[in-house]
Computed example of a mutant assay.
Amino acid sequence: MPQTILCVEDEVDLRGDIVEELEAAGYAVLEAGNGEDALALLAKAKPDLILCDITMPGMSGFEILPRLRKAQPDYEEVPFIYLTALAGRSDMVQGRKLGADDYLVKPIDYDLLLATIRTRLDRVGRLRQSFNASFESQRRSIVETALSDAKLALNGVASALDKVGRGIVVFDRRGLVSLINDTARAIAAEGDAVILANGQLRGIQQAGAKALALALDEALGLEGQVSLVLAERDFRHPLAIQIYGIPMPESGDGPAAIAFLIDPEQRPPVSAEIIRRMYGLTVTEARVGVALASGRRLEEVADDMAIAQTTVAYHLRNIFRKTNTARQADLIMLLMQSSLYVAAP
């Protein structure tokens, strides 16, 4: 599936040229001629990168970025590049302060534009690979911990799994749900990808329902059997369901499969205590990190903590240094990854 880029540009001819270049380079392109149309479109679809003009009638590009990230914090990881004829240093500084990742000056150098896009998307891709590797490692740890003590009471397992910040569902040999944690229950309650019905986890859309049922049947009781199902959702990224077979004892009792429900749009809770101990942060720095990871802007963090924005910026610089990061988006990704599976107290 090609990566998608949103181009927000009020000049029709220029927007057409940009779209043509992007499509020729293999990208899917969404178009908006003004800020209002862009925000309306972004409420329905999430592109992989955003190109945005600054000077437009109505809402300017400088207004779009903060409004977008305030309304939809999960857009923090989407690269945002300004396209503008404003080449002054103050304009560039303002764009950077708002959180823009790059700043390209008109007339557009299309080779530079494509190279910049590729660099930004590759960086996001590397971060996601690291994120997924951490998920796999911690998934294995969760399974080993949950199943290592056969004498562990069933309600004890359920209580432990409720502390996990990812959806987990355990199935018995009949394919019925024997355990489900709070996160998975909340995902099912949304009713747009999967539901719980008559003790079963079922897909909403027909294709996803069939794929889920087949994957579960194949996994039950078979050690090493791994299946991935993508449950489609309207106007949202699919819900990923990873199903792993568990060898059953001769008695046939006990868990036969375990599924992990991965919502790419869900921002996992971050534990202040975990990130404080992992990165040597002070208590205040950890509070700032948690607030940023939850989608709060710097000025909102300052208001919440009753401190000056300059003090928040000072703490943020210390956090960057201690975590070896340079961009707020990279920091947030790292913090979410650091406590990905433990619900924040």
Rank of each mutant, 00 (worst) to 15 (best):
D10K: 02
E11S: 15
L22S: 07
Y27V: 02
A38L: 02
I54R: 05
S60N: 00
R69A: 07
E77F: 15
L83W: 09
L83I: 14
A87Y: 07
R96P: 04
R96N: 06
G99R: 05
L104R: 04
P107Y: 08
Y110N: 03
A115Q: 07
T116N: 11
R123P: 00
R128C: 09
R128I: 13
S130E: 15
N132T: 10
A133V: 12
Q138E: 12
S141P: 10
L152W: 15
L154M: 10
D162A: 10
D162Q: 07
G165P: 09
D172M: 04
V194Y: 08
A213Q: 13
L214T: 13
L214P: 05
Q225M: 08
R233S: 07
H237L: 15
G245F: 06
P249R: 03
G252K: 06
G252D: 02
I258Y: 01
F260R: 01
E265A: 06
R267P: 05
E273P: 07
I275W: 00
A286N: 04
L292G: 09
R296A: 09
R297F: 13
D304W: 09
A306T: 13
T310V: 15
V312N: 09
I319G: 08
T323I: 11
A326T: 14
D330K: 00
I332D: 02
L335S: 01
A343F: 15
A343T: 15
